[in-house]
Structures are given as structure tokens and as C-alpha cells.
């Protein structure tokens, strides 16, 4: 195998390895997000129990806990959706890698073909595959954009959760003996929201690595 051929092949491998790694990283990060959102849901249930014990003093807390729970459920659902889409994107990347490899191999093959060999047949099929690859790149870009939109949706949910944390702290001051308990819950949710935000930042970076070259 010539040096040129082996370096060309290794570039293809590096590029596809980068994509697979990016998808795996996004999946791992989203798994962590899912775990954190479960914690948020648990905090919301905890706050609900505290508010029930606090009775009329913590009346304002009931709709807040329901809302926090909803946010946690929404985040979990979005994470599942993103995971499924990231997996599809990964399969796309594999298909693209195979197609690119076929095209490369066909071009390499043409270099070694004898004058009278079937150049027309291989040229025609290479052009068809190149066209399919171009269309594929368009589809891939669109799917990648959809993923980033889903991530943005999670960020919207987090913004809402942050506002709720602020409201929770205000409501906690009216809960008398239960003030500190409810403040702890608000802190927990706030911390979880920040954790998710940081993780999503990393996921956004990894998704940008998925763009095909």
C-alpha cells in the first residue's frame, strides 16, 4: 500500500472516529443530565411534602413544586429525544464513512485500471455516489440543526426553572419554621440547573464536532 493511500485512509478513519467519539460523549453527558433531572424531580416531591407539613404557611409553594416537577419531566423527555436523534446521526455518520470509503476505493482502483478496462462504468457509479453523498451532507446538516434546537429547548426549560428557584426563595420566607427546609430545596434545584447548564455547554461543543468535512 502506498504512503499516500495509507495516509488518505487514516484521515478518513480519524474523521469518522472523531464523529463516533462526539456522539458517544453527547450520549454520556445526556445520561448525566437525565440523572440530574431525576434529582430535580425528587427535590420537587420533597418540597411538596414539606409544603404539605407547613400547611397554610406554604400555600404558595404547591404550584411551584408542580412546575418544577413538570420541568424535570420535560427535560427527561427532551434528553431521550436528543439521544435518539444523536444515535440516528451516528448511523448517518457510519453510512457516510462507508460511502466515502467506497468512493475513495473506486478512485484508487481507477488509477490502476488498464486502458481497455471498464472506465465508463466505474466513473458513472462514482458520480452517482458523489451525488448521494452531497444530498446526504445536506440531510446531515439539517439533522444536526434539529439536535441543536432540541438542546436550546432544554435551555428554555432551565431558564424557567431558574426563575422558579427565585420565586421559591421568596415563598420560603413565608413558610415560618419550614423556611430553611424549603430554601434547601430551592438551592438543590438551583445547583442541579447549573450542573445541567454546564453539561449542555459541553454537549453543544461535541455536537459541533459532528459536522462532516
Amino acid at each position: 500500500m502506498s504512503h499516500h493511500q495509507s495516509s488518505r485512509k487514516s484521515k478518513t478513519m480519524q474523521s469518522s472516529a472523531r464523529q463516533f467519539l462526539a456522539v458517544a460523549s453527547v450520549q454520556a453527558e445526556l445520561f448525566a443530565v437525565k440523572q440530574i433531572s431525576k434529582r430535580i424531580s425528587l427535590s420537587a416531591k420533597n418540597a411538596k411534602a414539606i409544603a404539605a407539613r407547613a400547611g397554610s404557611q406554604a400555600m404558595g409553594f404547591h404550584p411551584i413544586t408542580d412546575f418544577i416537577d413538570d420541568v424535570a419531566i420535560n427535560i427527561t423527555q427532551l434528553v431521550e429525544k436528543i439521544n435518539a436523534e444523536a444515535l440516528k446521526l451516528s448511523s448517518f455518520a457510519i453510512a457516510n464513512r462507508n460511502r466515502s470509503k467506497t468512493i475513495e476505493e473506486m478512485k484508487e482502483s481507477r488509477k490502476h485500471m488498464l486502458k481497455y478496462a471498464d472506465h465508463n462504468g466505474i466513473k458513472k457509479r462514482t458520480e452517482e455516489l458523489e451525488k448521494m453523498k452531497q444530498q446526504f451532507l445536506v440531510d446531515y446538516k439539517r439533522k444536526n440543526g434539529d439536535l441543536l434546537e432540541l438542546l436550546a429547548e432544554i435551555r428554555n426549560q432551565l431558564q424557567a426553572a431558574e426563575m422558579i428557584c427565585t420565586t421559591s426563595r421568596t415563598e420560603a420566607t413565608r413558610a415560618g419554621d419550614f423556611q430553611s427546609n424549603l430554601e434547601v430545596v430551592a438551592d438543590e434545584v438551583s445547583l442541579a440547573v447549573n450542573n445541567i447548564k454546564e453539561t449542555l455547554q459541553s454537549s453543544k461543543y461535541h455536537l459541533s464536532q459532528l459536522s462532516l468535512r
Binding site: 476505493e105 484508487e108 482502483s109 490502476h112 485500471m113 488498464l114
Partner: peptide, 10 residues
Amino acid sequence: FSAVLAATLS
């Protein structure tokens, strides 16, 4: 593959 393809198409 590429070598076999070239040989086949000859």
C-alpha cells in the same frame, strides 16, 4: 478491494 475492483474491471 480497490486492487480486486481494478482487476475485475479489466
